[in-house]
Design a protein around this nucleic acid. Structure first.
Length: 169
DNA sequence: GCCAACGTTGGC
DNA sequence: GCCAACGTTGGC
């Protein structure tokens, strides 16, 4: 019998743990709104690359909550994925701005996950701070032209930004 | 409001 | 499959 590699999590062999960065405009849905609601459906993603990332998400994974168009823009807190990926219901709603005429119940086009508020940072870790940090070199959110609302982030970068955010300025 | 850097659409 | 036109994102 082959021995199971010991660098995998038991009962979860084919599911690597990801960390994510999820964006919302601060004026549309801030970390305070997220905290008030406690949970939310991450509906309305209409970009194929972002959708493909959503489809690799797993329950329990953590993400940085990022304020786009913020004052300043940056990481404002932490949330958690609390469902497996599933069809975004707004794609079937003819009255929704997210309606998708190509979508059918049998083969949906867009995916979503349910998310839960975990923590608000003591301070926003600004994009300029992220972009200039040597320890965050290569981070996707600071890359020029990067506009995805859902992107992966390394465990190391996630942990570092969380440490910065939890510490008062 | 400007505009760079994309992604998407549709004619051919 | 190419690519021009158009739409969107998001920092500034």
């Amino acid at each position: 019998m082959k021995k199971r590699p010991n660098n995998r999590v038991q009962n979860n062999i084919s599911k690597p743990v990801h960390y994510w960065l999820l964006k919302n405009e601060e004026a549309d849905y801030s970390i305070a709104d997220f905290q008030r609601d406690n949970t939310a459906e991450w509906n309305g993603v209409r970009n194929f690359q972002a959708r493909n990332y959503i489809r690799t998400m797993h329950m329990g994974e953590l993400f940085l909550y990022y304020h786009a168009n913020g004052n300043p823009s940056g990481a404002a807190g932490v949330g958690k994925i609390i469902s497996e990926p599933h069809a975004d219901p707004t794609q079937f709603d003819t009255k929704s701005i997210y309606f998708e005429k190509r979508a059918t119940k049998e083969s949906p086009v867009w995916s979503t996950v349910r998310v839960q508020f975990v923590a608000q940072f003591a301070r926003v870790v600004s994009l300029s701070e992220i972009a200039t940090s040597a320890r965050l070199k290569g981070i996707l959110v600071a890359r020029r032209g990067q506009r995805l609302s859902v992107m992966p982030i390394s465990q190391t970068h996630f942990a570092h930004i969380r440490t910065l955010g939890m510490r008062s300025a």
